[in-house]
Write a protein that binds this DNA or RNA. Sequence first.
DNA 1: CCTAGACTGGACCCCACAGTCCAGTACGGG
DNA 2: CCCGTACTGGACTGTGGGGTCCAGTCTAGG
Lengths: 198, 198
Amino acid sequence: MRRLTRKGAATRQRILEGAALHIREHGVVETTLDDVLVRTSTSKSQLFHYFPGGKEELLLAVARLEADRVLEDQQPQLGELTSWEAWRRWRDLIVARYRDQGTNCPIHAVMSQLRASTPGAQAVVSELMERWQAEIADGVRHMQAVGEVAGSLDPDQAAAALLSGIQGGVLIQLSTGRTTHLEAALDMGIAHLRANRP
Amino acid sequence: MRRLTRKGAATRQRILEGAALHIREHGVVETTLDDVLVRTSTSKSQLFHYFPGGKEELLLAVARLEADRVLEDQQPQLGELTSWEAWRRWRDLIVARYRDQGTNCPIHAVMSQLRASTPGAQAVVSELMERWQAEIADGVRHMQAVGEVAGSLDPDQAAAALLSGIQGGVLIQLSTGRTTHLEAALDMGIAHLRANRP
DNA sequence: CCTAGACTGGACCCCACAGTCCAGTACGGG
DNA sequence: CCCGTACTGGACTGTGGGGTCCAGTCTAGG
C-alpha cells in the first residue's frame, strides 16, 4: 500500500479501532472478521485491502495500538516520578486503570493468539516492557539524584522487579477480578525503594 | 461416566497426558483433537466418551493437571521456607524450572483459550494462586516466629506481592525468553523480607 | 459362561470463518 | 475533463476441525 487517500486512511483507522473495541468487549477468540466488518460497516475486500496479511496482520496492528495506549494512559504521572507523593499518584492511577479494564486485557488476549505464528508479536510486548521499565528506572534515578534513594540500588533492577509485580498483579486480576495483588505488588515495590534511603 | 474399568481409566489418562504434552510442545492454538488422537492412538469416540464436553472439557482437565504440577515442582523447597538459605534454594529452583520451561507456558496458553467460555477455568487459576500464596505466607510466618522478620509485616500481603512478581516475571519471560525479570522480582521480594528485621 | 454396559473404530456431518475474485464507483493529479 | 488507481460491495470458495453416530468388541460381575 503506497498511497492512501484521506478517505482510505479513515477507513483503515475505522477498521482498526473497530477491531480493537470488539476485542476489548468480546475477547479475541470471539472476534471474527465478519464481526469487525459489521461493526465498522465495511466489507471483506476493504479489510484485505488495508490489511493484506489478513487476520494476523490486523491483530498485530491492534496489539500495537493497545500497547501504545498502555503507556499513554499512565501519563503524565509515569513521566514525573519526582517525589514520593508523585509515586503514590502513579500507583493509584495504575490501580484505577486496571480496575476499570476489568478481567479482559486486550494485549494479553491478542498475544496469546499470535504467540508462535507471528514473529513480530513478541517484539511488540518486549518493546512495551522496555519502554515501561525505562520510565520507571528514570523515576528511580531521579529519586536517587534528590537523595531520597541510595545510589547503591540498581535502578534498572528495581524497575524490572516493580514492573514484574505490576504484570503479575494484572495477570492475577484476570482470574480473580480483584486488584489486591496488583496493589500489594506496587506497594511493596515502592516500599522497597523507600526502605533504601541513603 | 459412572464406572470406569481399569482399561478405561488408562485410556482416559493416556488422552489427558497426550493432550498436555502436545500443548506443551506446540501450544494450544496448534493443537487439534485429531493431533491428540494420533499421538495417543485413540479415536474420536473414545475422546468424547471420556470427555463428553469435548475440547473445552479436555482443556480444562489439562489446565488442572498443569496447575497441580506447578506446585509439585516446587516441593519440597516451597514447604520448608524456614531459613534464608532455604528461601534462596527455593528462589533458584523456581528460576531453573521456568528457564527450562522456556517461552511456552501451558497453563497460560490453555487459560487464554478458555477464559470467557468456561466458568470453571478461572477457578483453576484462582485456586492455584491461593494455594501458592498460602505456602509462601506460611514461610513468612515461620520467619517471623524465629525472629528473622518483624511481626508488623502482613504475611499475606507480602506473599501476594511476591507471588505477583513471580507471575509477572514469568509472563515477561514468555516474550523476552529471559528470566532476568523473574530473578529481579524474586530477589526484591526476598530482600524486602530481610529488610524488615525486628 | 452369559449378558449389560463399558469400550473402541472410524466414517460421516456440518458450518464457521478466513481468504479470493471481479465488477463497479469515487477520487485526484495532470 | 479524463484516466489511472485507490477504493468499495458482496457473492463465492474451500477446508480445518469440532462434534455425531452406530455397529462391533471387550470386560466384569453374577
